[in-house]
Design a protein around this nucleic acid. Structure first.
Lengths: 194, 194
DNA sequence: GTCCTTAAGAAACGGTTCGTTTCCTAAGAC
DNA sequence: GTCTTAGGAAACGAACCGTTTCTTAAGGAC
């Protein structure tokens, strides 16, 4: 047959698509080099030339076209912004997302596990900072600066719930926002009234 | 040779010891039925008669002689109690502890993963409640009841750090206690002054 | 003590995936 | 047209899987 042989970015994109397909169909634990090779219509040797481990291959496929996974929302209120952020993150970290992240974190490939930790922890505080600044400008929060550790609280609690426990429902998100995050931010920013 | 053949609790204890030994030496991912059988001086069939999966076998070994893993400390101060609790939990969830917990959570054995979630989440709030009650009695906190979600905050943040990120140092523990937990407890309990 | 049921332990099975190697040849540069 | 690079096919030994078969020690019943 007119055997066309792919190269470079075409091939790489086909492999990434095959990895995603296998992840969705079978999950991280059951994903194999042989399955990906078959799905991509290539051979194992082609995969091993690119990535030393399954974890590295999957991580590359996840971070391929740098899809900014979480955007800072702007709904007009502190509670609205935090709720929206946790809602978006909840979708991202549930189901297959959790499976892939935990799979890589518990894999024997320590290098890729480290990269994954970087990926899911890096912007914890920075994604929340603009929300707090706008709330402060609106008068919803006081003017004392909020420490980075506290700014990271929403994403820290989200990770704990979605990656380690289970998918959050709206009530769980509301509880985190209303019982923990907002009261703490109000206190630390120097605003007394509820 | 005088081939002595173990049974019942003797055998079970030897298997649990072999599992622990293999976990310490190779970690969860590299632990195999064949390795455990060899280490325990028995055969795979004996293991499969007892546990259907590696996750179930390891979980059974972890929860064998119900070693109450975390006790509520009583140091005489709110900050001291919380610091001690996080310090103890930090040791428990680091190194091999993290490896085993994440390994089981990301395993294909969903039943055992569910049991593990129960194990590490069940007492999150209850372990902190006596600490808060004593602090309230001392006058360190106000008298408003603190919601369960907030009581779980110390263990939730500990899990996020130690299981997903890395082992905490004393500074990290101090930050969680001083920047997040104590200010929130003070606010929610109705105590204003720092 | 003897009998009898249970389960330990050894060994082998076919099957899957691993990670590597060999070989052939299509793609693309020059 | 020539040469270098890399895609793709196939096979490899090794490890572990989960199961099965068989022998025989352990331990209770009597």
């Amino acid at each position: 047959m007119g055997a066309t042989r792919r190269r470079g970015e075409d091939l790489e994109a086909a492999i990434h698509a095959a990895v995603q397909s296998q992840l969705m169909e079978h999950g991280y634990a059951a994903l194999t080099f042989e399955g990906v090779a078959a799905s991509a219509g290539t051979s194992k040797a082609v995969l091993y030339r690119r990535w030393p481990t399954k974890a590295a291959m999957v991580f590359a496929s996840m971070t391929d076209k740098d899809k900014a996974p979480l955007a800072t929302p702007d709904t007009g209120s502190l509670v609205g912004d935090l709720t929206q952020l946790l809602h978006d993150g909840n979708e991202l970290f549930s189901h297959r997302g959790r499976d892939i992240i935990l799979g890589i974190l518990s894999d024997t490939d320590e290098d890729t596990a480290w990269s994954m930790r970087e990926l899911i922890f890096r912007r914890s505080a920075e994604i929340v900072r603009p929300i707090v600044e706008r709330a402060c400008a609106r008068g919803e929060l006081g003017t004392h600066p909020i420490p980075t550790r506290a700014l990271a609280l929403p994403m820290d609690l989200l990770r704990n719930e979605t990656l380690l426990r289970r998918k959050l429902d709206d009530a769980g998100i509301g509880e985190i926002v209303g019982v923990c995050v907002v009261p703490l931010f109000e206190t630390l920013s120097g605003r007394d009234a509820g």
